[in-house]
Simulated assay, not measured.
Amino acid sequence: QTIAKLMRALDPEGVEMRSKKRFKRGLYHSGGQNQTWHMDGYDKLKPYSICISGCIDGYSRKILWVKAASTNSDPSVIAYYYLNCVDEMKGCPLQIRADPGTENVTVAALQAFLRIRIECFWSFLLRSWTEWWRQYFASMVEERLFSSRNHLHKCLIRHCYLEIVQIELDQVITQWNNHPIRHQKELHVPCGIPNILYHCPELSGWRDMIQPVTTEEVRHHAHTPNYVGDEQIDKYIDHAMKRYKLLLPKTTEQAKHLYCQLKAMVEADSQ
């Protein structure tokens, strides 16, 4: 009720239109690939300590990156992904659009449609991939192997599962970037396959709007994030992996076994 009252006070016309089901979406325009990159965070696995962030090209709907790490809200981590992408593309877009986060609701309302570029992919990810992992980690909670309130558990989950999660995310990205997108009335961009639209804009009569950037400029600013999320625990895990000649897992079964091994080691040493 409090939120509803605030919305009526801040945006009475919008509330009135929505209540009468007369709300109209804005139109999305793009002059070509690399005009606008849309970045956003994905929190469906955040209760299990895995934070996902991604970026999509507004014109082609090509996913430029989707990364799993210990955070998707640290600006330095997002900057690392962005700069790596700029390095790979040998240039940057004319503009970027990002999640408004905790800004006031009027700004969020104005930018909501702009973020829908990547929200479509998040919906696709939820249907095709996320639900399985949510059920998997939920079973670990039921087995009392994991608690979202335990910092150690969260770090171990990331150490044992992030590489597997990232490999699967890369596969989903490949699937998305090669699937046909149908025409949508509210979008003034061509329909088609994202990879083809992005890499062959001349086929649709559009142009690449990338802004050239040198590799040296990018590397000067880039740095690697800590994916485990805690330097001390990261050092302990690294030492244990080398001392006991443990291998990084390739399957969920191996990941769960390693998780239980490391968890038992840390708990035994802390007693």
Rank of each mutant, 00 (worst) to 15 (best):
P225E: 09
A268Y: 08
W133V: 00
G101T: 13
D238Y: 05
M17I: 02
R144I: 04
K21F: 02
A109Q: 09
D99C: 12
R149C: 00
Q166P: 00
I96D: 09
Q166I: 02
L83T: 10
H153P: 00
T215K: 13
I167H: 08
I210P: 00
N178M: 04
P180R: 07
E231Q: 13
K21R: 09
G58A: 13
S139D: 05
S139E: 13
H153Y: 06
H257F: 07
E88M: 03
V107T: 15
W122A: 07
Y236L: 09
K256M: 06
I181A: 04
A98H: 05
L10H: 08
V86Q: 03
C120R: 13
A264L: 12
R144Y: 06
L45F: 00
I3H: 10
E163T: 03
H257I: 10
E163Q: 05
S60D: 09
H188Y: 08
P93A: 08
Y244H: 14
W206H: 14
C160K: 05
H29E: 07
R115D: 12
Q271R: 11
Q261F: 14
F146I: 09
E119P: 10
S148G: 11
K20T: 01
A222H: 14
L152K: 06
K44N: 01
E119W: 12
L126Q: 13
F146M: 09
L83F: 12
S70R: 00
Y42W: 11
L203R: 13
G91P: 02
D40F: 04
K24R: 11
L45W: 00
Y42L: 02
Q232G: 06
V107H: 14
C85I: 08
T106S: 09
D87V: 02
R182W: 03
W206I: 03
L247H: 10
Q166K: 05
R182K: 11
W122C: 05
P190A: 12
S49Q: 00
L246A: 10
K245C: 15
T130H: 04
K90H: 13
Y161Q: 02
R149W: 01
K242P: 00
M39G: 14
E142D: 14
L125R: 04
L114A: 15
L45Q: 01
L203H: 08
G91R: 12
Y161H: 06
N72H: 09
H188T: 08
I157R: 01
R115N: 15
V66F: 03
T106Q: 06
G58M: 03
A108M: 12
T130W: 01
G229T: 06
K185A: 09
T36D: 12
R22M: 10
Q33R: 15
S128N: 15
I96N: 12
T215V: 06
E119Q: 10
S73P: 00
E217G: 01
T2I: 14
Y136R: 04
P93Y: 09
L83G: 02
P194A: 01
K256F: 05
K67V: 11
C160Q: 03
P194Y: 05
Y161L: 01
N72F: 07
P100Q: 11
R219A: 00
M17N: 03
E217C: 11
R219V: 05
E186G: 04
